[in-house]
């Protein structure tokens, strides 16, 4: 079963060991070239912490399970600070084709909650398959031009 970023945001993040709620899922960070969710950001603003995807023991429909509180860490490097600050946010980002035409904004990402593999990028009415993702940065997500 696929999951969606817009559905997953706000889901509680729970420790499997203590059953305690550790926070709310605020962002999912994607490595566009690997087409993979690489980490999660829990909480917003200065309280934002990071969970590596490998530390997620179960990405369920009602909660995101991690082993324990130790899975959450403060941003450690520039990449993680950018992630926590929302600079790597895909949702809402401009989507350009490699032919230089704007397709719209990234509205949602469909992914496999078991593996973190990105399946499609939703841009308006259009579903861009993960294989068409070429790159992403502060300005835009670049995708292979769809056949028109």
């Amino acid at each position: 079963m696929s999951d969606r970023f817009t559905a997953a945001l706000g889901r509680k993040v729970v420790s499997r060991t203590s059953a305690e709620e550790l926070g709310e899922l605020a962002r999912l960070i994607v490595d566009v070239k690997r087409r993979q969710v690489t980490s999660l950001v829990v909480g917003k603003g200065r309280k934002a912490v990071v969970v590596d995807w490998a530390q997620v023991t179960g990405f369920g429909p009602d909660a995101v399970m991690v082993a324990d509180e130790g899975a959450l860490h403060q941003p450690r490097d520039d990449h993680e600070h950018d992630a926590a600050d929302g600079k790597l946010e895909l949702l809402g980002k401009r989507v350009l084709s490699d032919m230089g035409n704007e397709l719209g904004e990234a509205g949602d990402v469909v992914f496999d909650p078991a593996s973190g593999a990105v399946e499609t990028l939703v841009v308006g009415e259009r579903e861009v398959p993960a294989a068409s993702l070429l790159g992403a940065g502060s300005f835009a997500v670049v995708v292979k031009a769809p056949a028109e």
Binding site: V32, L96, G100, G135, G137, S138, F139, V142
Partner: peptide, 10 residues
């Protein structure tokens, strides 16, 4: 804008 396909940067 001149945008990189690889990096999505202007």
């Amino acid at each position: 804008p001149v945008v990189t396909i690889d990096g999505g940067e202007d």
